[in-house]
Design a protein around this nucleic acid. Structure first.
Length: 278
DNA sequence: CATTTCACCTGGTGGC
DNA sequence: TGCCACCAGGTGAAAT
């Protein structure tokens, strides 16, 4: 499932391939599910605008768009906000590439390529935002790559729910999902079920540092390819090879050889080493 | 207000 | 071999 490193990889890949191009034609499927903005209004809003740049915030991909006319400047006048949900893909293809099942949006670009959104489970979301008079999209939670130690501690110390549930709460930190919650808790040596409020200052700082490291390493390796994640070019990432606990139930811990356990925390499959994490 | 539960979806899995 | 019930999992709404 796409989390911060996967979304960052995709956003960067899309940016390199489509920056500066104009959306010549937009098609959105009639099924209402993935559209936060109704499909017809979305397609209409997108057509004719230039894609100024593409970036990530939290788990969202934001395409900054120019004005509705082709000769408007480089100031963002609208946005296309893409959330990949569980199984969403944002792909840059040639126009004649076979259209994958569950393709919900196709944008043909002035450079001759196509930007496609594919999502079998339709947990993803597509939103068109006209910025006239409105602020741009921003994720609710803090950015894990830049959050300071003080702010991190202040965010998690008052919470009484499990640290795993707190890490997954996008209103606190934006971008952490199941994989990187489990992996950062392993690297910090903390039990997923431990209450966030019972973590010491030292544990919170270990967790922040571990999360930062694991996210940076994962970005460097192009994300984790589990289930069906691929980047904008359809390429796999390699961070799944570095996983210490995620989807390693029963396998020996890389640090102490104790079998990795799988439990349910906050309704999510959760993997940890019973010896290394206390 | 904080926290928990549930619905939304489909492909993959496992039981018979 | 084939059918089907079951389930994961990010998010937001509803319930507690």
């Amino acid at each position: 499932m796409p989390e911060l490193p996967e979304v960052e990889t995709i956003a960067n890949g899309v940016d390199v391939r489509v920056r500066g191009q104009r959306i010549v034609q937009a098609w959105c499927c009639s099924h209402p599910q993935p559209f936060k903005t109704p499909a017809a209004r979305q397609a209409k809003g997108l057509e004719g605008r230039a894609i100024l740049w593409v970036h990530r915030t939290g788990k969202h991909i934001v395409c900054e768009l120019g004005g509705p006319s082709s000769q408007s400047g480089d100031h963002p006048a609208a946005q296309w906000v893409v959330h990949l949900g569980m199984t969403g893909r944002l792909l840059v293809t040639t126009p004649d590439a076979p259209v994958a099942p569950h393709t919900h949006a196709r944008l043909s670009l002035s450079g001759g390529k196509e930007l496609r959104f594919v999502d079998p489970r339709r947990f993803g979301r597509l939103e068109f935002r006209d910025l006239s008079g409105k602020a741009g999209f921003s994720a609710q939670g803090a950015e894990p790559l830049t959050i300071a130690a003080e702010e991190f501690a202040a965010l998690f110390h008052p919470r009484r729910l499990s640290i795993k549930a707190a890490l997954l709460n996008q209103a606190l930190l934006a971008g952490v999902g199941n994989i990187y919650a489990d992996e950062s808790l392993f690297r910090a040596g903390i039990r997923p079920r431990k209450s966030s409020s019972r973590l010491t200052r030292a544990e919170l700082e270990r967790l922040r540092a571990a999360l930062l490291q694991v996210l940076k390493d994962a970005i460097r390796l192009g994300g984790s390819s589990v289930s069906d994640y691929v980047d904008a070019e359809g390429m796999h990432g390699f961070f799944q090879l570095e996983h210490c606990v995620y989807l390693r139930t029963g396998l020996p811990c890389r640090r102490c050889a104790t079998p990795i356990k799988r439990i349910l925390v906050a309704g999510r499959g959760t993997h940890y080493c019973p010896k290394c994490q206390r």
